[in-house]
Design a protein around this nucleic acid. Structure first.
Lengths: 255, 255
DNA sequence: GTCTATAACCGGATAGAC
DNA sequence: GTCTATCCGGTTATAGAC
């Protein structure tokens, strides 16, 4: 998680460094807090930059001094959301050993922690969907967050007592991350009470996914698994270095 | 395809009806043509409503008289794109009987016909991704187009010589439509030369999908298939009537 | 050199006259 | 149906204050 994402600068780096107190980097913090609160209260589009600035007690020009666009304020949300998720699911991952339960815990906590921002996330997704946007989950700017999330999925598998076909093992975390993206996509569109449909989807698909993982070691499934895994490798090879199983990460002229 | 989508009204309904000539519904048509041309030339965001109006020889207010927003101009693209796709793949569907080949033909023609609008589609997707947008593929406004596309998938399966597990048969077209959406999502993010990665993805995943469909009749896979199919039904039940396997279709306060 | 503020600009959208 | 004038909000230019 970078400073850019959390809205923090060097303040409070600890006794080791010079620890530049940076008086008015509190301003930056104030702006982020205000923005996130207003986003939660009025939604993304319902919150104007003028409102954020005024509520935060700064001028609009000043807000733009710290954040180069309204979208960049969202990065703060990304970082925070990810951090909250990690905290929320670490307990389960330390105690539970069953793969399905571990997966369920991660998915449930993801949705639960994001729930207060449900409406916000919908509007958010609008800008995040643009491949050219730095907010796209596939963009290079999102790489750190994406890597964290993928590593979490690796942890889910490794800490479990499931036997995973070695062929599949390397790629599985990426595939599970993609699965999580699908769940989130569904959640964003889900307007059922309490997002009941999303939780039902999680219950049922987690079951299916774990079943597929188990089946993957069967001889019958071997060729299919091998082909699938090989595909992800080829796609990566066709893309630039460091790219993820889904394209993106390269800049594109926005117009 | 509705009038709204094509930008046509009753003009030219044929010798049967009164055929109200609707003098200046040509205006509407002019606006659409101009808009699509400018979108292709300068991209979606690079084209202003002022430019469209001025190029079309009307005032900006007049443009808004015909199309309630810039986004609504996109519906015209949707309809056109869909129509082109149907024309492009009908030949293959009439001659080819092998399921994998039929699926490949539909997917290839989809991407090929959309290719000129690749950049446009990227920006387009940004607005289409908003669950609240009428342009969301899951919105009720998109229902006609979605139904057409789903029926195309039904045709792909029915016209083939593949044996599909009866349990799966009803749901399969919806699932294949979802699969197509996934391909398009990938394509939008694909900046490889000629979108080579997308075509590779199609080649490989079509293979896997067809394999899965074939495997679905195995006794071993029965319970898994049954669970998956049952899930889609439950999700639909939790949603409003007429909803598709993925949520959406209900209006939501946009702010 | 780091911050803050005011006054525009631009483009999507609307009101209301003709 | 068609126009002009205007609003509104993201963004930028730029002038100053610490």
């Amino acid at each position: 998680m970078t400073d850019e994402q959390t809205g923090q600068t060097g303040a409070g780096v600890g006794p080791g460094g010079p620890a530049k107190p940076k008086k008015a980097d509190l301003t930056r913090r104030t702006i982020v807090e205000t923005a996130l609160r207003l986003f939660r209260e009025h939604g993304y589009e319902g919150t104007t930059m003028r409102a954020i600035a005024s509520e935060a007690g700064v001028s609009i020009g000043n807000a733009y001094y710290y954040f180069e666009s309204k979208e960049h304020l969202i990065q703060a949300y990304y970082g925070r959301s990810n951090a909250e998720h990690l905290v929320a699911c670490v307990d389960a991952l330390e105690t539970e050993r069953d793969l399905k339960q571990r997966l369920l815990a991660v998915l449930y906590t993801k949705i639960e922690t994001a729930q207060p921002y449900h409406r916000f996330a919908g509007q958010l997704f609008k800008t995040a969907a643009d491949p050219a946007s730095p907010l796209s989950p596939f963009s290079s700017e999102s790489m750190p967050t994406r890597r964290e999330a993928t590593e979490l999925m690796a942890l889910v598998v490794e800490g479990s007592d499931a036997r995973v076909s070695p062929e599949l093992a390397d790629e599985l975390p990426n595939l599970l991350w993609l699965y999580l993206m699908g769940i989130i996509l569904f959640w964003i569109h889900d307007d059922s009470a309490g997002c009941a449909r999303t939780f039902k989807l999680i219950d049922r698909t987690a079951d299916i996914v774990v079943n597929l993982i188990n089946l993957s070691s069967l001889t019958l499934m071997r060729p299919l698994v091998r082909r699938a895994v090989q595909l992800t490798g080829e796609l990566r090879a066709l893309a630039g270095p460091g790219a993820e199983p889904v394209p993106g990460g390269q800049e594109r002229s926005s117009e």
